[in-house]
Design a protein around this nucleic acid. Structure first.
Lengths: 210, 210
DNA sequence: TGCAATTATTGGGCTCAGCCCAAAAACTAG
DNA sequence: CTAGTTTTTGGGCTGAGCCCAATAATTGCA
């Protein structure tokens, strides 16, 4: 209600968020994510350990800051695609696909999230996919509800849930392949399209427009 | 090489594994998963705290013991389905589907894993799906490699990965809906079939037999 | 019977993430 | 200058997960 924008009173933030991210990025390169402690990060950033938790709920959030910033636009992208916009968005699965592709189009090829670069630390690639999925949870709920609304399904409908989560999983696989493609990876869009289209194809006849 | 079956020498295990599971189940009912400590579990089971880690790598594994036991049969089920068996297993996606359905057929309708019953503790249902996926990682790698082999794809192929992880995600959604269906839930098979079939349909033309 | 070798259990101690709380710091509005 | 607000900080605490060395219990062999 009120915490949006600048609040007028109180002690100003030390603008520490960016500093924490920078310090963490440096340390993740020097050492690894696993062997970097929160205390090291905050010491390098010049703040107290407790201050860290004023900016990030957990250490692992540092791995996903880029992804989180991407997905900030997810609700609006979904809304635009489902509202029909000007294009073909009549079918729910296609609307979801277009929304996700539009999001991917806005992602600079340069900044790959830490979570995708430090693969070796997090075990198998599939384990990382799962970890990514777990991160996508919050935004994924938005996706599920969008599917339910667009297809006229009631809340908790199995087909809607299955499609939403399968689409998310395929997207994660695409992002991982994209990140693993090296410096000349180009845009995420073709990767995402290749992984997402089959899922949409499969669910399209079962999830007609309401 | 040698740790399989009973090892002949050494101090015998206190048969504590089942006791630990029982003690944990009791405490999860009395209190919740979150507010139950490992020390409480081991005290009730009559063993030392350190002994816990001789049987489970982490506390969260207690939530997934049932699932893990189910998925023990995954490799053999995959092998059977891919070897053609007697049935229709010519197509990779169908082979995977049949293997998973066969697995689901062997699951008693009674024992729902803790991870699925303690939903409220773990946040949203989607978050739980993701958590489940993260558990499936180990077995999911098996699935991915099976797809790669059956479809003649090279390791790390995007389509194979996307299909494997999408199928896993849909399976999780199915299991969750099944667990949420209450006492009269019946077999997992129809749930799994409904969620899995569209995924297979979508990928079938793109993943032909090698 | 006794002596290795082997394996499980145990106690002790340690690091680190995450949380809580209360005091102090820095700012704004009156 | 004062009261209210927000952030920072220090202190301390719990609990998971790990490591290590000591001990208990068993088998195989001599």
């Amino acid at each position: 209600m009120n915490q949006s924008d600048v609040s007028k009173a109180g002690r100003p933030r030390g603008s520490s968020r960016a500093m924490l991210q920078e310090a963490a990025a440096e340390l993740f390169l020097e050492q690894t994510y696993a062997s970097t402690t929160i205390e090291q990060i905050t010491r390098r950033a010049g703040v107290s350990r407790n201050t860290f938790f004023n900016y990030f709920p957990a250490k692992s959030d540092l791995l996903w800051v880029e992804v989180d910033s991407w997905l900030l636009a997810l609700p609006s992208a979904l809304k635009a695609a489902l509202a029909g916009g000007t294009a073909q968005a009549t079918q729910p699965t296609d609307a979801i696909r277009h929304a996700l592709l539009a999001l991917a189009g806005g992602i600079p090829a340069g900044d790959v999230p830490w979570a995708l670069t430090q693969t070796e630390l997090m075990g198998t690639t599939l384990e990382l996919q799962a970890s990514a999925l777990s991160r996508f949870t919050t935004h994924g709920a938005v996706l599920t509800r969008a599917v339910e609304r667009a297809a006229g399904r009631q809340e908790g409908d199995l087909l809607a849930q299955a499609f939403a989560v399968a689409a998310l999983a395929a997207s994660c696989a695409a992002a991982l392949a994209w990140a693993g493609a090296g410096v000349a990876r180009g845009s995420l869009v073709p990767f995402l399209d290749a992984a997402l289209s089959p899922v949409c194809d499969g669910f399209r006849p079962l999830l007609p427009t309401r």
